[in-house]
Design a protein around this nucleic acid. Structure first.
Length: 571
DNA sequence: GCCGTTTTCGGCCCGACTGTTTTCAGTCG
C-alpha cells in the first residue's frame, strides 16, 4: 500500500472512531483532510520532506504532525490509543441504517464490535431488545448487513448506463412525465455508480409512480410513495425516482446531482451572500422570498456563478472557477475525430477483423482510426514482431486505399520492459504512424523503477503515447505508484501523450490525474483499447473521464484533424 | 480540528424520512 493510501485510511478510521465516541466536528475535520490527501497527485512524501504539509487544504498543525508520524513510523499512536479505547471494527459503520450512535449503543449494551458478532446478535433477537431499537431496526440492519457482505455494491458506469437509459426511456415514453433527468453520480458520470437517481415532474403522481414500479425489468419495489419510490431491477441495481414540483425542478436537480461536497460548498457560498439554499429553491434570507428554483442554471446564476457542468461538481475548485468565469469549455462528443487505440484480429486477443474496424469507424463518422496491434509478448503468439511490422503496414495501407473519408493509421501497442526498453526495434517503430507504449508485465517493481521505466519509454522518440499509464485493472490489481511530477514533466518535454484508456476494465488515467496532466500542459489521447466490436462504444466513457478531468478540446489530440495529428505524431 | 470579503474565536449545510417514541434522535443523501 502506498504511504498516501495508508495515511488516508488511518485518518478516516480516526474519524470513524471519534464519531462513535460522539466527538463533534473533529471527525469531519479528519475526513476532510483525508479526502484532500486522497486527491493529491503529488507525492505525499515529497510534500512532507519539503515541509509543505500544512499547505494542503484542511490540514492544520495537528493533522500535519499526525501525517508526519504515520510517514515516519507507519503508525499513529493517537489512533492506536483510540482503538484500545473503542475496539470497534469501522466496517460496522458501512452497514446501512447503522450510524455512529447506534454502533456505540450496541457496543455499550452488548459489547459487540464486529460484523460477525452483529449478525449473531441480530439473529438471536438481542438487537431488538435494546432501547431505541425495535423489530423494524432489526430488519433494516439485517438488510444493510447483507449488502455489505455482498461486496460494496458499486457498479461500473458502463454497466449501469444502458440499464438506466432503458428505465428513463420507459418513463419518457409513457407520457405520464413532463421532465425526466438523471441526477446523482450517474449524472456526474462517475465511473463507479452505487445506484441510479432519476428526477421527474408529473401531473398525476400516483399514476406516474404506478407506472414506474411496474416497469419492465423491475424485480422488487423497495419503497413507494408520492414523491419517492425505489426499485431494484433484475441486474441488482437500485433505481430511485423522485417526483418534484416543476417550480423546484432546477433546485432539486442541483441538489440531487451533488456531489455532497459540492453542495456543502455551494450552500456556504449561498449563506455568505445572504441566501438560503435547499432542494426547493434559493431563498432571500429574511423575506423568505424564492429567487430561483425551476431552472438549474438560475440557481448558479443568482449566486454569481456560471452553470457548472455536472462532471465538474466534485469540489475540486469548480465553484471558484465558476465565480471567476474560468470554467473550462469541456470537450464534446463531436470533437472526437477518431480512435487512437484499437486492435484488429492480428492481435491474438482481438476478434475484430480489419474490415469490421473500418465499418465501425465510418459508422461513427471518424476521420481516422489507428490500428494498434499488440507486439508479441513472450508466451502469446501471433502479435507483431520486427519481422511482421512491414506486412502490418502494407496491410493497413492497402485497406486504406480501399476506403474513402477514413484514414487508417498503422500502429502498434508495444510493451515497456522492466528496464524501459521496448519489444520492437526502433527500425520497426519508425515504419509505424502511431506507437503506443504500455506496461503489461512486471508490475511489482518499486515506484522509482516504474517511474524510470515509463520515463525511458517516453524518451524514445518513436513513442507517441503511453497507454493506460497506471496499469490498473479494476477489481484485479491497483495502480502502480509513479512519481507523477516526473512523469508529467518528461511527457511535456518529450512531447509524449498520456492515454485516457476508456476501457471499463482500466479507466486509466482517472479524472484527478487527467486534471493535473492538463494543468502541466501534457497532451492526452482518448483510446478505447477495443478488442471486440462493441468496445468502440467505450469512446463515450473516455469522453466522460476527460470531461471529469476538466479537459477541453485542445487538451486531447484525437480532436485534431488528420493533418495536424500527423504533424504532431511526426514531431 | 480547521478556518476567516461577516470572525484569530466561534462557528462548522440542510431537510426528509424512519422508527421509536410520546416530542424526537439517528441516519441518509
Amino acid at each position: 500500500m502506498s504511504t498516501r493510501k495508508q495515511v488516508v485510511e488511518i485518518l478516516n478510521q480516526v474519524a470513524d472512531l471519534l464519531e462513535i465516541k460522539g466527538v463533534d466536528y473533529k471527525p469531519r475535520a479528519y475526513r476532510r483532510a483525508a479526502r484532500e490527501i486522497d486527491s493529491l497527485t503529488e507525492d505525499l512524501t515529497d510534500i512532507y520532506e519539503e515541509g509543505r504539509l500544512e499547505d494542503i487544504p484542511s490540514v492544520g498543525k495537528n493533522t500535519a504532525e499526525k501525517i508526519a508520524e504515520i510517514l515516519e513510523t507507519e503508525k499513529l499512536e493517537y489512533y492506536e490509543e483510540l482503538k484500545k479505547e473503542i475496539p470497534i471494527d469501522p466496517e460496522l459503520l458501512k452497514v446501512r441504517n447503522l450510524g455512529p450512535k447506534k454502533v456505540k449503543k450496541i457496543w455499550d449494551e452488548l459489547d459487540l464490535t464486529s460484523l460477525a458478532e452483529l449478525e449473531e446478535a441480530l439473529k438471536s433477537g438481542k438487537i431488538r431488545e435494546i432501547k431505541g431499537f425495535g423489530p423494524k431496526s432489526e430488519e433494516n440492519i439485517l438488510k444493510g448487513l447483507k449488502i455489505v457482505k455482498e461486496s460494496q455494491g458499486k457498479s461500473h458506469l458502463s454497466e449501469v448506463l444502458p440499464e438506466a437509459r432503458r428505465i428513463k426511456e420507459g418513463l419518457v415514453d409513457s407520457s405520464l412525465f413532463d421532465k425526466v433527468s438523471f441526477a446523482g453520480s450517474l449524472r456526474r458520470r462517475k465511473y463507479e455508480v452505487g445506484d441510479v437517481d432519476i428526477l421527474a415532474t408529473a401531473g398525476d403522481r400516483d399514476k406516474a409512480m404506478d407506472h414506474y414500479t411496474t416497469l419492465d425489468g423491475v424485480e422488487e419495489v423497495l419503497s413507494k410513495g408520492e414523491t419517492k419510490s425505489s426499485v431494484r431491477i433484475k441486474t441488482g441495481l437500485r433505481v430511485d425516482l423522485r417526483i418534484v414540483d416543476s417550480a423546484s425542478f432546477g433546485s432539486a436537480l442541483q441538489y440531487f446531482t451533488g456531489s455532497q461536497e459540492h453542495n456543502v460548498r455551494l450552500r456556504q457560498l449561498a449563506i455568505s451572500k445572504g441566501y438560503k439554499l435547499n432542494e426547493y429553491g434559493l431563498y432571500a434570507e429574511e423575506a423568505e422570498e424564492k429567487v430561483a428554483g425551476a431552472i438549474e442554471e438560475e440557481m448558479y446564476q443568482k449566486l454569481d456563478l456560471s452553470w457548472i457542468p455536472p462532471e465538474l461538481r466534485e469540489d475540486r475548485g469548480e465553484i471558484q472557477a465558476a465565480g471567476e468565469g474560468e470554467l473550462p469549455g469541456l470537450i464534446e462528443g463531436d470533437d472526437v475525430m477518431g480512435d487512437l487505440h484499437c486492435h484488429s484480429a492480428r492481435s491474438s486477443d482481438s476478434h475484430i477483423p480489419l474490415d469490421v474496424l473500418v465499418r465501425e469507424a465510418r459508422k461513427r463518422n471518424y476521420s481516422y482510426l489507428a490500428v494498434t496491434d499488440h507486439a508479441e509478448i513472450s508466451g502469446i503468439v501471433g502479435g507483431l514482431t520486427d519481422d511482421r511490422v512491414a506486412e502490418h503496414v502494407d496491410q493497413i495501407e492497402s485497406a486504406n486505399s480501399a476506403v474513402e473519408e477514413l484514414d487508417l493509421l498503422a500502429g502498434a501497442e508495444v510493451n515497456i520492459q522492466p528496464d524501459g526498453t521496448l519489444d520492437l526495434g526502433d527500425g520497426s517503430l519508425k515504419e509505424l504512424d502511431v506507437v503506443i507504449a504500455g506496461v503489461h508485465s512486471h508490475f511489482d517493481r518499486s515506484r522509482a523503477e516504474m517511474t524510470e521505466r515509463t520515463v525511458r519509454a517516453m524518451e524514445n522518440p518513436n513513442v507517441d503515447i503511453i497507454a493506460h499509464p497506471t496499469g490498473r485493472k479494476i477489481g484485479e490489481r491497483g495502480s502502480f505508484d509513479l512519481d507523477w511530477g516526473k512523469i508529467f514533466a518528461r511527457a511535456e518535454e518529450t512531447g509524449t501523450a498520456l492515454e485516457i484508456n476508456a476501457s471499463p476494465a482500466r479507466t486509466d488515467l482517472e479524472d484527478k490525474l487527467i486534471k493535473r496532466a492538463k494543468e502541466e500542459e501534457v497532451k492526452l489521447t482518448i483510446g478505447t483499447d477495443s478488442h471486440r466490436v462493441n468496445h468502440l462504444d467505450y469512446m463515450e466513457l473516455g469522453l466522460n473521464l476527460a470531461r471529469r478531468g476538466w479537459c477541453e478540446k485542445a487538451n486531447v489530440l484525437n480532436t485534431l484533424p488528420l493533418s495536424d495529428l500527423r504533424a504532431w505524431l511526426a514531431g
